[in-house]
Design a protein around this nucleic acid. Structure first.
Ligand SMILES: [Mn+2]
Ligand SMILES: [Mn+2]
Ligand SMILES: [Mn+2]
Ligand SMILES: [Mn+2]
Lengths: 221, 221
DNA sequence: AATAATTTTTAGATTAGCCTAAAATTATTT
DNA sequence: AAATAATTTTAGGCTAATCTAAAAATTATT
């Protein structure tokens, strides 16, 4: 099977090429995985030998179908474990990522399928990210940024762009958690601060940086 | 923190010195961990440098308190994960060990404590082995081998000595699982085959090798 | 006590994964 | 089109964990 490092590289490359089907370059992998470009070159040679990606010197890499499959399996494991940690063990949504980063490398397809079943075949992880199915299919949700909503429009918080602990804690503190309905009341003309109306009738003021990192499912009323 | 390999060595040494407080010798570690003596020598030097064990050339090793602590923590994790896999994910008792062998190395004390709580603070794993507490304390149960029982005596199956999959499956097939009450009906004088009476009134015949590997809690009737 | 057998250690390699520094290539400015 | 900047690769080294084969130490046998 594949090593932790190999799986981490595949996952990182997968996420980099996910929303832009260009070749992924060495430096961007290095940045995303917090390592040096020279290390990346070493590793992508190995992954290329193992037919997990296509590599042309100085031209970046592209995952093969096999590489993509392993990457998606790793994402599936990661998100299922995050769901377990959050739903069953009651970890806060900003605490699950680092532990899942370890758990995602446990080798056993039986384990992950039983975990999936135990969790009731969840479709999204605690951050609203879709959980790939056994078959590798990922159902893309059509969420939009809360910053895209016009004054008067409403949406249900369904995901986050920024996954950092400090951001997630900030949302939690403001009651902006998954499933909460929010309506845009006012957008400050000068500083773009956004006034949000919660379903509790409570009104809160958040920065533009916050609404740019929240994904909502639009509610037509 | 400690590497997977280091934790595995500590656990192996711990189990070897557990029931005999002599120094543990190089070859026995090599055998138990399925590696070569030269590799063991390399590793015990490292563990000695890290104050996890006391090592004297040609004289074997003894865990320090620190080494013992890490070993017990690893055993705790292993058995809690086995319990999770068995109780929650419904893995058979012969399927949990190999996966727990991986899970025991996940680094997060918060995780293991929450798992412990989630499982209801179990005292024994699916094979009847005691689960060390947070504090490292292991409650030793006074189980005896089923082979020690005389004709007429009864006991509740509470553990196994042999943990191999083939043995565990054999027990399962014969209904000899944890918690089952058995009474020794007859011991064959010629071949030592043992006739056991189950609480279902069913009577089964098992080999001496089987009863020598089952631990029971004696029932005084 | 000497010899033989066994155990343990050392010496020297190997592989995975990472690093720094220098060289090579590609991209961007002048 | 040169020159300069940025990116990428190569070269050489390092650590962890393993191995084989040989040497050294210990233990058992004659
Ligand atoms: Mn995550
Ligand atoms: Mn990872
Ligand atoms: Mn086990
Ligand atoms: Mn292990």
């Amino acid at each position: 099977m594949y090593s932790f490092a190999e799986e981490n590289y595949l996952k990182a490359i997968y996420k980099l090429q996910e929303h832009s089907d260009l070749a992924v370059n060495t430096n961007s992998i290095a940045t995303s995985i917090q390592t040096k470009a020279a290390s990346v070159t070493d590793m992508i040679k190995k992954l290329s030998d193992k037919k997990l990606l296509k590599y042309e010197k100085y031209k970046g890499v592209e995952l093969t179908n096999l590489g993509k499959k392993i990457a998606i399996e790793t994402v599936r494991k990661h998100r299922l474990w995050e769901t377990f940690l959050h739903d069953k063990l009651k970890f806060a949504w900003d605490e699950v990522h680092d532990i899942a980063e370890q758990l995602e490398h446990i080798k056993s397809s039986e384990l992950i399928d039983k975990l999936d079943e135990y969790l009731g075949f969840p479709t999204h992880d605690p951050h609203g990210d879709p959980i790939p199915g056994r078959n590798g299919v990922i159902i893309q949700s059509n969420f939009v940024l809360l910053s895209e909503l016009k004054v008067g429009e409403s949406g249900v918080i369904s995901g986050v762009v920024n996954h950092s602990s400090v951001f997630l804690k900030h949302l939690e503190k403001n009651g902006l958690t998954l499933g909460k309905k929010v309506q845009v009341k006012e957008i400050g003309e000068f500083d773009q601060l956004v006034q949000l109306l919660l379903s509790t009738k409570e009104s809160i003021l958040v920065s533009n940086e916050v609404v740019k990192n929240i994904l909502v499912k639009i509610q037509y009323s």
